[in-house]
Every structure is written in C-alpha cells, then in structure tokens.
C-alpha cells in the first residue's frame, strides 16, 4: 500500500508531483546537493579503505603490528627519526613513537574498528529504539508510561561515566561487542522518543483507522501502515547518531577502555599521541583528521537527508 501524506516531519509525498515516489524524489534532491555528495564521497572512501585494509597494507609492505625499532630514536625515548614523525617513501604517514609501527597501516585498520563499532552500535540503538518507541506510541496507556519512564531514566544518566564504569566492570570478553552493546544501550532512548512521538501522531490518522476498520490485525497495522511512515525520521536520526558514536568510541578508547591492543582504533591512536604530541605532532594529526572527516561526512549526509525528506522543501 502506498504511503499516504505524512506528518510534517516525515517523508515528502505531500508535495510530490504525480508519478514520482517520495523516495525517488528524495534521491533526486540528494543528487543535487553538493554537501550530501561530498559527505557520501568521504564515507565511501573510508569504507573502502576499511574493507581494503589488508590490500593497502600489503601495498606499503608493513603490517599494523610490525615493529620497526630502526625507525625510532632510542636516545630520545623512542621519538621517530626524521622530520614529521618519520614520513618517507616507505612509511607514508610516519611511524608510531616508541614502537615504530607504521601509522598508515594502523590508521587503515583503525578505520575498520571505528566504523564497525559505531555503525553496529547505531544499529542496536535504532532497532531497540524503534521497537520500543513504536510499542509505547501504539499501545499507549500503562505500557507507554512504563517505556517512557525508562527512556527518561536512561537519559538522565551521566552517560560517559556510566559507559566507562560499565565497560570496566564487564567480564573479559569480546571488547568490541561489549562496546557496541553499551553504546547501543545508552543510545536507544533518543531514537525511541522520536519514534514514539511520530507514532502518537500517526496512530489516529485516517489511513490507520481505515486499516483498523477493515479488521486488519494490530501487528499488521504496525508493520504495514505505521512503520513505513517512520522510516524517514529514523533514517535521518540514525545517520546523525553514527558520528556521535564514532566520537564516543574514540573517547572511550582515548580514555583507555576501548578496544584492546594490539587492535588499533583512531581513538586509541589519539590516546597514545597524548604522550607525544609536543615532540611529534604528526602522530595526533593523522587519526584526528580521520575522525574529523568521518564525523563531518556523516553529519553532512544526515543533514542532507533531513532537508531532502522535509516536505517543506530543502529551503531551510
């Protein structure tokens, strides 16, 4: 069933000229938005880099955990030899102070960890938030009150402190998985609140009443009538959550409770860099610029999604 006109925040079918589906309209708007294209290009670049990590490191010939003591100066406590953190034709972005590991290889492998964790955590938050928000909004009554209270509660936790504390007391296990669930746990209420609000406005719309009148099952109404109309705001919010999670993962790794060595992540590289930034600024600039670019790219894309999905047009 085609989605009828939505609330003001949702997809843009209201202004759609005849014969164009709302999603195609959005696609067209995105293609004409330079910011969206730039964001998409940067994301594609980093994703490709992460996927092709073994290939790229084969190309330059240094694994991410290969030590190169000849590249560092023992007399200077392990500072890289040469200018700009030891950049040369062999080590494209220099070497890690203290160990002499190749910064380029660690950055490429770090992209895998940073992107994987933040996207997975966003996935967890989005699924949980959508399911619970939908349930709260559609069921109403006590269920709504209960779920809403839980959301308020989770939101009033000092999140970073609790994330640090939780990760630090969790039993030794797959740290990446733990990070995904801890970050997802603190992230779902944000999406949950938006979904609940949207569901409340949709619940009594004519097309839902019509579906109800035809005797459609409640679950079917939720999945076939309500959920498709929530996709737009959820998509926007999920895209804007990814950069936040990239930052959080980096922050946790930076504070020493993120991924464990020898895995590398950008945040972990930053945290190593703090001991060296006065001697070797190149070493903190590399992961810093990676973080800056990915966060910027996802924010640009998220903003572009929001503008494109806004039925009032992209003029805001």
């Amino acid at each position: 069933m085609a989605a009828p006109p939505l609330t003001t925040e949702a997809a843009g079918s209201a202004s759609a000229p005849a014969g164009q589906s709302p999603w195609r309209l959005v696609g067209g708007r995105l293609r004409r938005d330079p910011a969206a294209l730039a964001g998409l290009a940067i994301i594609a670049l980093f994703v490709l880099m992460a996927i092709a990590a073994p290939l790229l490191t084969a190309l330059n010939g240094h694994g991410p955990n290969e030590f190169h003591p000849e590249k560092i100066d023992k007399a200077l406590a392990g500072a890289p030899k040469g200018a700009f953190g030891g950049i040369d034709g062999d080590f494209w972005l220099g070497v890690e102070p203290g160990t002499g590991r190749d910064v380029f290889s660690r950055m490429v492998y770090g992209a895998r960890v940073s992107l994987l964790i933040s996207v997975a955590a966003t996935g967890v938050a989005t699924v949980v938030g959508t399911v619970l928000g939908l349930t709260a909004g559609f069921a109403g009554g006590r269920i709504d009150t209960f779920i809403s209270r839980i959301m308020d509660m989770v939101l009033s936790f000092p999140q970073l402190i609790f994330m640090i504390a939780l990760v630090s007391v969790l039993p030794e296990g797959n740290r990446m998985l733990e990070l995904v669930f801890v970050m997802g746990f603190f992230g779902w209420p944000y999406i949950g609140r938006i979904v609940r609000g949207q569901t409340l406005t949709l619940r009594h719309r004519e097309f839902v009443d019509a579906a109800r009148a035809t005797g459609m099952l409640r679950t079917r109404i939720v999945f076939r009538e309500v959920l498709p109309n929530l996709l737009a705001p959820v998509l926007v919010y999920a895209t804007l959550t990814i950069p936040i999670n990239i930052g959080t993962e980096a922050a946790l790794s930076f504070l020493g409770i993120g991924v464990r060595p020898p895995d590398s992540s950008w945040g972990q590289m930053m945290s190593k860099a703090i001991d060296w930034y006065q001697v070797d600024p190149t070493f903190f600039v590399v992961p810093g610029v990676c973080l800056l670019l990915t966060v910027l790219a996802f924010t640009l894309l998220g903003d572009a999604f929001r503008d494109a999905l806004d039925p009032r047009g992209a003029g805001r």
């Binding site: 922050a251 930053m270 945290s271 903190f284 810093g288 973080l291 966060v295």
Partner: peptide, 8 residues
C-alpha cells in the same frame, strides 16, 4: 574531537 582541538 575535543582531544584533537586540545592538542592542536
């Protein structure tokens, strides 16, 4: 990222 700004 705040640590990047701080170091820079």
């Amino acid at each position: 990222p705040i640590y990047f700004t701080a170091m820079a």
